[in-house]
Amino acid sequence: MSARIRSDQRKLPSEMRPFYCSSALLSRSDGSVRFKSGDSSVLCSVFGPMEVKIRDEKLDKATVEVVFKAAAGNSTTKERLYERVIRETLEASILTALHPRSAIRITLQVLTDDGGILSTALNAATLALVDAGIALRSLPAGVTCMIDQEGVLLLDPTILELEAARSTHMFVFDNISDGALSNISTGSFSMDEYTSCYDTCFSAVAAVQQLFRSSVEGKVRREHGPEADA
């Protein structure tokens, strides 16, 4: 009947790809998580609180370091921008004052990139921080959406869909407040388009938060055995 809007199996413009995560994959890091959103997947490992380089030492709080590695090729300005967005977003949630003069290192390795890699990486980093037992004020979760040439809003676009994007938007929300934690928007868009992107992402993030809760609860339940529900 209608022309296919999405490039993959999805039927609706406001439909997210299936996502899941698996934690504690790496034996040597303090926390590790692989987060998959459709065909985009990112492996994140967290070390810390650990020794900090004298150059980066902060006397009253921990230094958060983020390393973002693309699936292939050298690190470019795009990766540096991603590192900065993720670091500044997570710094707001990590209780850095609890560990002065130490470092918290977050390493993100893209395994496969099929669009929305920044929000996938941010979600992986949040869960890896929880896995590492680092004190967090809240859990930030990211969602990406785009507006194509015809003005149709597509949630969680694939790399194919992003090629026809007029603007792309990434919003981060947490589980304790109603406002956005951070936002990156590129391209040209009107104020109305921006607000509709904001609203779409805000309602979509609930599913990500739901996954955060179920995966963390599952991990705690595995470790504690029947005692956890008693």
């Binding site: 303090d30 609180p49 590492a132 037992g133 004190a135 705690v220 005692e227």
Partner: peptide, 23 residues
């Protein structure tokens, strides 16, 4: 709560989180 885990209470007024970490 700032960490994931099981909330525990003892003595009526003592609260803490029982979670696991490596560091």
């Amino acid at each position: 709560a700032v960490k994931a885990g099981v909330l525990k209470q003892a003595g009526g007024s003592k609260y803490w989180m029982d979670g696991s970490q490596k560091r």
